Amino acid sequence: MRVIITIQHPAHVHFFRHTIRALQAAEHDVHVLTRERPMALLLLDHYGIEYDVLTGPFDSPVKMVVGQLRYEYNVFKAVRRLDPDVITAIGEPAIAHSSTLFDVESVLFTDTEHATLGNALAFPFARRVYTPDCYEDDIGSKQVRYPGYHELAYLHPNRFEPDPSVLSDVGLDPADRFVVLRLVDWNAAHDVGDSGFEDVADVVESLEDTGVRVFITAEGGVPEAVEDHRLPVEPHRVHHLLYYADLFIGESATMATESAVLGTPGIFVSTSRRGYTNELEERYGLVFNFSGQDRQTQAVTRGISILDDYDQETWDDRRERMLADKIDTTQFIIGRITEAADRRDRVERSSRDRAARS
C-alpha cells in the first residue's frame, strides 16, 4: 500500500517513527510530509526518515493563516500526485480535507481537546477519528476510542529501552538526583492564550534547595538567570534522561506524560488541561496538574513534597498498573492504517466489478 504521513510537531515524529519503519520493512511505500520545524526535521534526520518540507515556519497569527493555506495547497498537490491508499496524521485538517477532495481513506489521531480550531476544521471531513479512551470530548459516530496514550507509541516497553550512558553525557553519576524542567514557547495554534510558569528562576531555586540538580529544556529562550541550566543532551536522548530523573516539571503535557509512562512522576503546569493528563493523575497518580492562578506555587510545593519523600518503588508500581491497562499504541496505528487500506481496496474492487457487469 501507499501511505502519506504528515508531521507538524516533533512529538509526531516519535508517534509515527516505529510505524514508518514497520511499514517500510513490509515493503509498503511511505511518504512523509512536514512543516519546517527545526526540531522535527532534526529528529527525522536522526532516525533516517526521508521527508518533503511543504511550508516554512510562521511566528505570527497572520503568517500562521497564510502558512496553513500554503501547507494545505501543497498537501493537496502531494495527494493528487502520489495517489495514496491512506493518509494519516495527528489532528491535521489538511489530510481530512484531502481525503474528501480525492476520495482517499484518512486515519486521523488526536488527544488534544482544546485544539478547538484544528479540530473544528478537521473532524467534519475525517473518515475516522481515533482518540485515547480518556479523551473527554464526544466527536460522534466517527470517533473510535482505544486504551492507550500517544506516548506509548514510542515509550511502551516493547519500543523503548533506557540507556544509562545518558547520565554521563550530562555529567551525572547514577546516584545523583535531578529534575527535568520544560518550557514551551506558546506559539502553537492550540497554545494561544495559555501560560505556565510566572518565574522560572524561582522554580529552579526552590527545587535545587532540596539538593537536586535542575536541567531545563526549552522550545524558545530561557531567562538569563537560569541559562546555565539548559539541558546539554541531544534531543533524541531526552527520553532516556526522563527515565532516570527523579521528577519532571513543566509546561508540556506531552513531556509530563512521557515521564509518567516511564515511571517518573510528572507535574504539568498550564492554564489548559488534557484528558490524558487528568487520567494519569486521577486513575494512576503519575501526573499532577496545576492550572489555577497559583499554579506555580502549588506545582513547586508538590514537586518538593515528591522529592522529599521519594520512593522509586511507588512510581514503578503505579507505572506497571497503568501499563497493564494500556496497549502498544504503534500496533494500533499500524492496524488502523492497514484496515483503512483494506477498506479502500474493497471499494475499488466493488467498483470494478460493477463496471464489468455493466
Rank of each mutant, 00 (worst) to 15 (best):
V3I: 14
V3M: 05
I4V: 12
I5H: 01
F15P: 00
R17Q: 12
R17H: 15
A22I: 07
V32K: 11
E36Q: 10
R37A: 14
L41W: 07
L43E: 06
D52T: 15
F58A: 13
D59R: 14
V62A: 15
Y71N: 01
V79Y: 02
A89R: 01
I90H: 10
S98A: 13
S98V: 00
D103G: 06
V107S: 00
H114F: 09
A120M: 08
A120K: 05
L121H: 02
R127H: 08
P132I: 00
K142E: 02
R145K: 14
H156G: 02
P157Q: 02
S168Y: 00
D173M: 14
D173P: 02
V180S: 10
L181A: 04
N187E: 15
E208G: 09
A218H: 03
D228R: 11
H229V: 03
H229E: 06
E234P: 12
I249T: 06
I249P: 04
S259W: 02
Y276R: 08
R283K: 11
F288N: 14
D294Q: 15
R295L: 11
R295E: 12
A299K: 08
V300A: 01
T301S: 15
E313M: 12
E313W: 06
W315V: 09
F332D: 13
R343V: 06
R344P: 00
E348R: 13
E348N: 08
R357A: 04
